[in-house]
C-alpha cells in the first residue's frame, strides 16, 4: 500500500498548486484590468468544463508527442492542479465578491494600497467565506488522484489494478481501496471543519 504514500504526496503538492492558481486567478478575475479578467475567466471556464481525465491524458501523451516527456506523477499533478485550480478560481471569486464593500472602503480611507487591501483585508475574509466550498474542492482533488492510474501505476488505485491483474481477489481489494480513501477523506473533512470552527469566532 505504498501507493498510498504517493497518493498523499500528489494530494499535498496538488493542494499547494490549487491554492496558488486559485488565489492568483481570483485576483485576476476581480481586478480592474479587463485583460486580466478575460484571461482568468477564459482559463477558468475552459478547464472547469472539461474532464480532468482528458487533461491527464493531454499532459502526458500529447506533450510526449511534441517531445516533452513528463513523468506520470508530474503530468497527473499538473492536470489536476489546473482542473481543480480553475474550480478554486470560481470559488474564491465568489468569496471575494461576498466581502462587504465597506471593508474595502475603510481600508482605502486608511491609505492602504490596492495590493495591501487585497492581501490584508479582502483575501483573508474571502478565504474564510469560501472555506466550505474550497474544502470540498480539495477533497475532490484527493479523490481525483485515482485518475492518475490511467497513465501509470504509481498511486494507490493504479497499484491496486496491478495487483488485481496478478491475483483475482478484486472485490476485496476495491473494498480496501475504498476504505483507504474514506479514511483520508474523513481526516481531511475533519481538518476543514476544525478550521471553519476556529475561524468562526471572527463572525462576519
Amino acid at each position: 500500500m505504498w501507493g498510498g504514500f504517493w497518493t498523499l504526496e500528489i494530494t499535498l503538492t496538488g493542494i499547494v498548486g490549487v491554492l496558488i492558481v486559485g488565489i492568483v486567478g481570483a485576483a485576476m478575475r476581480t481586478s480592474k484590468s479587463a485583460l486580466a479578467r478575460v484571461l482568468a475567466t477564459a482559463f477558468a471556464e475552459f478547464f472547469r468544463n472539461t474532464p480532468p481525465l482528458v487533461w491527464i491524458y493531454f499532459f502526458f501523451f500529447a506533450l510526449l508527442g511534441i517531445g516533452i516527456k513528463l513523468p506520470a506523477v508530474v503530468a497527473g499533478t499538473l492536470a489536476l492542479v489546473f482542473y481543480q485550480g480553475a474550480i478554486a478560481i470560481e470559488i474564491l471569486r465568489a468569496g471575494i465578491e461576498a466581502v462587504a464593500p465597506g471593508q474595502v472602503e475603510a481600508a482605502s480611507a486608511l491609505g492602504l494600497s490596492p495590493l495591501q487591501q487585497f492581501t490584508s483585508i479582502v483575501l483573508p475574509q474571502a478565504f474564510r467565506i469560501s472555506l466550505p466550498a474550497l474544502g470540498n474542492n480539495l477533497i475532490s482533488l484527493l479523490k481525483n488522484t485515482s485518475l492518475i492510474s490511467a497513465i501509470g501505476t504509481i498511486e494507490i488505485t493504479g497499484i491496486a489494478n496491478d495487483i488485481i491483474a496478478i491475483k483475482l481477489s478484486s472485490a476485496e481489494l476495491y473494498l480496501t481501496l475504498g476504505a483507504f480513501y474514506l479514511i483520508c477523506v474523513f481526516i481531511m473533512s475533519s481538518l476543514i471543519r476544525y478550521a471553519e470552527r476556529r475561524l468562526a469566532r471572527y463572525g462576519s
Partner: peptide
Amino acid sequence: ELLRGIPLLVLMFFVFFGLPQL
C-alpha cells in the same frame, strides 16, 4: 458520505470488476 468519500473511479471499478465476484 460513503459515495462522496470514495473516488468515482474506484466505485466504477468495483461495480464492473468487483461485483462479478459477488
